[in-house]
Each structure stands twice: as structure tokens, then as C-alpha cells.
Amino acid sequence: MSRPGSPVCTPDWLALREPADHTARACDLADRLADRLGAWPGARDVVVRDLGCGTGSMGRWLAPRLARPQRWVLQDRDADLARRAAAATPVPATAVVGDLADLDTLAGTDVLVCSALLDLLTAPDVERLARLCADAGCAALLTLSVTGAVALDPVDPLDDDVTAAFDAHQRRDGLLGPDAPDVAAAAFARHGYAVHRGPSPWRLGPADAALAEEWLRGRVDAACAQEPALVGSAERFLARRLDALGAGGLHAEVGHADLLALPGTVR
């Protein structure tokens, strides 16, 4: 785990995954959100808060899709990432340092967005996030939460063991891991939201070799941290997978889900 004030993910990793993230996100949910915002009377700015913004990938993807004047608040517990994100957002943006624990209110926010964040939260965290959104009456677009569904081609005898250990690692200490999409959908529904869900899988092939390698290495490291007895066999598993990747013969589909939660009234 990273320390408070440090990035959960390094800038290099965020840059490496950004193209795959942009391709994977559920465009139909973004279009539905844009339609909802387009129905607002008047032409005031939409205020979007990106929680756990990283380097601002979400803003670069979503802002051009929202056909209204916008102002973004880029919030991350790492000050440097928040500043970088604000500088790289294609609409007026402000950097804010902090995470969910520092967020007391979403008053003045029209849309709360996040990317690859929910699986790093606990069920009480997600319930609090849903309540903050409901108190403010804001919409929420929550993208790229892992589902635990991973398909590697070709298959390997150790696939299931690595998956089980990795998923257990994601659920350590009460974190939601692959349970996040279901828990978040239920939390927002309890607060009166209409929740729309869409798949947003990474589909990695030979053209994504650098990302696939880092993903594989991180996956195996986490699995071994969870189940030390796997270390020897997992090292051989990783070597086989990297050999296949280097030969252009490995494909992976990594399951994610996007959620759009809309409040009951048009603002």
C-alpha cells in the first residue's frame, strides 16, 4: 500500500494504461450523462469533481463528451498529481489535495466521477460516497472498477490459482476489490438513484505488450503476497506468460464495469 500523500499508482503506470482505459470505458453511459446535462435549462457551467484523479485521464476522456460549459475539480491525495491533472484538463480546472476521507460535502458539485477507484474502497466508504452524492443531488459516473473476470488466451494450468489469490489480495482488510460494482450499485440505489451499468473490459493483445507485461507482473506479485506458497510456481507461470507475450501469442480480457448513477430529479 502507498503512504498517505503518495500516489496510489505511479504516473508511469497511469500513462501506460491511459489508452486502454479510454478505449474500454462505456461510451453509452457517458452519452446518457451528456443527454441528462443537456436537458438542464440555461447555460451555466457544469461542475465536475474527479475523485482520485491521478494525472487527469478521466477529464481528458470525458470533458469533450459533455456538450456544456464545464469546470472541473481535480482531487487527489498526491498534490503533484492533482496539479498535473488540472494543467492537462481541456477545460477550466482546479487542483485539490485530499481523498474521500477529506471530503465532507459535495455541495456545488453536479457530477462526481472516478476511475479505477471503487475497488480500493471499503463498503462503508462507498456508502458514504453515495450519501454525499445524494445530499448534494449530484450524478456519479464511476468507471473501470474491476469485476474479477479475467480471460487469458492461451489458458494455463495455474490461471485459476493466480486468479483466486489475486482476488483475495484485492479483498484484504475489507477492501471491495471485484465486489465493488455490485456494492456501489446497491448503495446508490438505496439513496434513490437510477443506476445504469456497462462493461468496460481491457482487451489486450500484441499491440499492448508493455501494458500487458506490467499488468501481469503486478497480478503475480499480488497473488504471491497473498499466497506465499505460490511463489515458485507463479514465477514459472509468469515466465511462460511473458514468453507468449513476447512471441505475440498472448491475449487478455480484463473485466471492468462502469456505473452511471442519476438522481431522481433533473437539476
Score class of each variant (00 low, 15 high):
165 A>Y: 02
227 E>M: 02
185 A>N: 09
170 Q>H: 10
2 S>W: 10
55 T>W: 05
22 H>E: 11
220 V>M: 01
136 A>G: 13
30 A>L: 08
137 G>V: 04
151 A>F: 14
117 L>E: 04
18 E>D: 11
227 E>N: 13
51 L>N: 04
179 D>C: 07
101 A>Y: 03
196 H>Q: 10
197 R>D: 07
217 R>L: 09
41 P>A: 15
84 R>I: 02
262 L>H: 02
87 A>D: 08
173 D>P: 00
130 A>D: 01
17 R>T: 04
81 L>K: 01
59 G>P: 01
132 L>D: 06
186 A>N: 05
26 A>T: 13
123 A>V: 08
232 G>L: 08
56 G>A: 03
207 A>V: 04
126 V>G: 08
169 H>V: 00
257 A>K: 04
96 V>F: 05
108 G>S: 14
34 A>D: 14
104 D>R: 15
232 G>F: 12
160 D>I: 12
16 L>D: 13
5 G>D: 05
205 G>V: 05
72 W>D: 00
184 A>C: 01
245 L>Y: 00
138 C>P: 02
80 D>G: 08
243 D>V: 07
88 A>R: 10
24 A>I: 03
157 P>T: 09
248 G>Y: 08
202 W>Y: 06
114 C>P: 04
264 G>H: 14
107 A>E: 11
147 T>E: 07
146 V>L: 14
255 G>W: 11
100 L>I: 03
194 A>W: 14
153 D>Y: 08
44 R>K: 14
188 F>Y: 15
54 G>H: 00
67 A>Y: 15
249 G>S: 01
14 L>S: 03
132 L>M: 05
125 D>G: 01
63 A>D: 03
251 H>Q: 11
96 V>T: 15
77 R>Q: 12
197 R>C: 10
93 A>N: 10
111 V>P: 01
8 V>H: 13
41 P>E: 14
160 D>H: 14
127 E>S: 15
103 L>A: 08
17 R>P: 07
179 D>N: 13
163 T>N: 12
153 D>C: 13
